[in-house]
């Protein structure tokens, strides 16, 4: 039992840079010994549990460069933006329900008020709430190091449980996606053990329709594989097709085949397969209805 949730005992140096350049300089200098501190709702717990023991913490909460919130041809959300800023921003835009529902589902206000979009992406959890809806938006992650900036499609961002493509000297600057064309709509559903909990399964859907025909379809799921994942065969089966009950059922069946869930303390592999199909049906129904308007 080398865990203590009452105190942090590992020593580290705390830096709170005021510019992104300064922050990237620290990361370049310290490499794997550094950790980026944003809201801290995940990192501090990991440190208490002994899963991470950085020697340097770089607090990025003061960096204005991470706080963009832009809605033009692209929607750009700075990585340092707290959920509680992003939620009203999205609600103000009146679409992007999937991402808004994912953020709202986190629910615990004490977390929404400090946790950031970048943090949720950065911890690389396959059960994280925001990646699936962002994947249905074909979002990309803007990543910077002291030496370069690159844009990584979100679908290539996760590499395994808790693992992402970021190099130790890189930082997530923002996540961005193209503004929805008229008629596109999205939805998000998740299952948890209690109202405030890590997800058992999540599913996000984004669709466009022409009458009863689905003209665009994105489906992504969380907590059903080593990374958040797109259900591509299901998407392909639906896109360009007239949507009826059998099409949706077929799609749900493909999703169940496409995912690779495991047993864990939250639920079983079998349950996840069954629930993924149900969540898809619910999320799809909601997005499909929204796309009508």
């Amino acid at each position: 039992m080398t865990v203590n949730t009452r105190v942090l005992i590992n020593d580290f140096t705390y830096h709170v840079p005021s510019t992104l350049a300064e922050a990237l300089g620290f990361l370049d200098q310290y490499g794997e010994d550094a950790a980026v501190l944003a809201g801290g709702t995940d990192l501090i717990i990991q440190m208490k549990l002994g899963r991470r023991s950085p020697k340097f913490l770089v607090d990025v909460s003061k960096l204005e460069e991470l706080k963009h919130l832009e809605a033009g041809e692209k929607i750009l959300i700075g990585a340092g933006r707290r959920y509680m800023d992003v939620l009203p921003f999205l609600q103000g835009l009146g679409r992007y329900h999937g991402l808004a529902e994912a953020i709202d589902s986190i629910g615990k206000l004490q977390v929404l008020s400090v946790a950031t979009v970048g943090g949720n992406l950065g911890n690389g959890s396959p059960a994280a709430d925001t990646p699936p809806p962002l994947m249905t938006y074909d979002a990309s992650v803007r990543v910077r190091s002291a030496h370069q900036e690159r844009v990584v499609p979100l679908r290539e961002f996760h590499t395994g449980p808790g693992a992402i493509v970021l190099a130790p000297n890189e930082i997530i600057v923002a996540v961005e996606f193209d503004a929805f064309p008229d008629g596109r709509a999205s939805a998000f559903r998740k299952l948890t053990r209690v109202a405030s909990d890590i997800s058992k399964v999540t599913c996000a859907v984004a669709v466009e329709r022409a009458g009863e025909t689905c003209t665009h379809c994105r489906i992504a799921l969380g907590a059903v594989g080593p990374t958040p994942l797109r259900a591509r065969s299901a998407e392909a089966a639906l896109e360009g097709r007239e949507v009826d009950a059998s099409a949706v059922e077929e799609c749900a069946r493909l999703i169940v085949e496409e995912i690779s869930p495991i047993d864990d303390i939250r639920c079983s592999e079998k349950y996840r397969r069954e629930a993924a199909g149900v969540l898809f049906r619910d999320a799809f129904a909601s997005a499909w209805e929204r796309a009508k308007c």
Partner: peptide, 16 residues
């Protein structure tokens, strides 16, 4: 409440 927003003091560094 930190700057008016609810937060969890058990996962917050004092220096921050």
């Amino acid at each position: 409440l930190i700057d008016g927003e609810p937060a969890l003091a058990c996962v917050t560094l004092a220096v921050a």
